[in-house]
Design a protein around this nucleic acid. Structure first.
Length: 322
DNA sequence: AACTTCGGCAACCGCGTGTGT
DNA sequence: AACACACGCGGTTGCCGAAGT
């Protein structure tokens, strides 16, 4: 095995044939493009067996999919809409990056995966900073966006569908909600198709959750869920106060658009892409049932302090909805 | 200016699945 | 049915430029 810097560039397989690794050159790209022109995006292994390139079929496919295929948005940052879509879909599908990428034109699974992981990393860092330096305020826009992003994850929609093809899974991270403490009062407004606080263990949810598409028909990609009402003067751990204070900032959630997210107390979050709007809804009714509940794993385990949902006002029963 | 940290990204690896023999 | 091979996916690694100190 030869090395160039830290990156291996040549290895040898059992037949002692050279296999090139590392960054692709323009000439190699051209060979690959020519192959696809002739044969289509398949027969990747034949590229090496024909001696066209010293790359594995796997490597060729990856190069084509991620860099060479037409209509890729290479070098273009994710738009707010794309970010929103990724957040929504990640909440729905989990880390099914390839699947999520199919909903974003010009984006690859690698793009989506990289986007998500870098946001997660930044988020974790910022939230750590936020928690550990509660006396400092966070003023820069990026932090503002990131914390909003954090909450969008926290509140990411949970699609519940009996027709969903993937088995749903429960996140380990939502299994310990018994000491939720920080919100004095949270009014969760039931929404169609969805959408439950991702950090809650449904078995311990002290309020009833339901969905009534008939009453609240799905309205498309920018439908919104109501955000927990924040009470201004409740006791908080110090490390949470700054964060919560910023949640109360009328502009705090404006990252989600101009549609009234600044209305304190009912800040709104985007939820469901329109293409998912046909899902059937299940009913979750608190204890005693085993709802088909999907928990998000979109946050790191240490955020938010899951005790921030401790005091939750029970929802009115569906019969009280008007 | 030098050094460190961070973020974005390309590419690789291991594993699961599908398909052909 | 069993096996081999190709392909696809998700996780991870490492490079590199930008930003910060």
């Amino acid at each position: 095995m030869l090395m160039e810097g830290k990156r291996r560039i040549i290895v040898q397989d059992e037949e002692m044939e050279e296999i090139k690794k590392g960054p692709w050159k323009a000439e190699e790209d051209q060979v690959l493009i020519n192959h696809v022109r002739k044969h289509g995006p398949r027969d990747w292994s034949s590229i090496r067996s024909k001696g066209l390139l010293q790359r594995t079929g796997k490597s060729c496919r990856l190069r084509w999919v991620n860099k060479l295929r037409p209509n890729l948005k290479s070098g273009v940052k994710f738009s707010a809409e794309e970010e929103r879509t990724v957040i929504d879909l990640q909440a729905h599908f989990g880390n099914k990056w390839a699947k999520i990428a199919t909903y974003l034109s010009g984006r690859t699974d690698n793009d989506v995966k990289n986007f998500w992981s870098s946001r997660q990393k930044r988020l974790a860092r910022i939230l750590h900073t936020s928690a550990s330096s509660s006396s400092k305020s966070h003023q820069n826009t990026k932090d503002h966006d990131d914390i909003s992003f954090a909450f969008s994850c926290l509140q990411a929609p949970k699609f519940i569908s009996s027709t969903e093809e993937e088995p749903v899974r429960k996140s380990e991270s939502c299994s310990s909600s018994s000491h939720i403490t920080d919100f004095e009062t949270i009014k969760m407004v039931p929404l169609p198709e969805l959408v439950y606080p991702s950090m809650l263990d449904y078995e311990n949810v002290p309020f009833q959750i339901d969905s009534t598409p008939e009453k609240q028909p799905f309205v498309g990609p920018h439908s919104h869920l109501s955000f927990p009402q924040l009470q201004p003067d409740f006791p908080l751990p110090l490390e949470s106060q700054d964060f919560i204070t910023r949640l109360g900032d009328p502009n705090f959630l404006d990252v989600f658009g101009n549609s009234g997210g600044s209305a304190l107390g009912t800040a709104q979050l985007p939820i469901v892409p329109s293409f998912l709007g046909q899902k059937t809804s299940n009913r979750i009714s608190g204890k005693g049932e085993s709802p088909d509940f999907v928990a998000s794993d979109c946050l790191t385990d240490d955020f938010p302090p899951i005790d921030m949902f401790d005091h939750i006002e029970p929802l009115p029963s569906p019969s009280h909805w008007s």
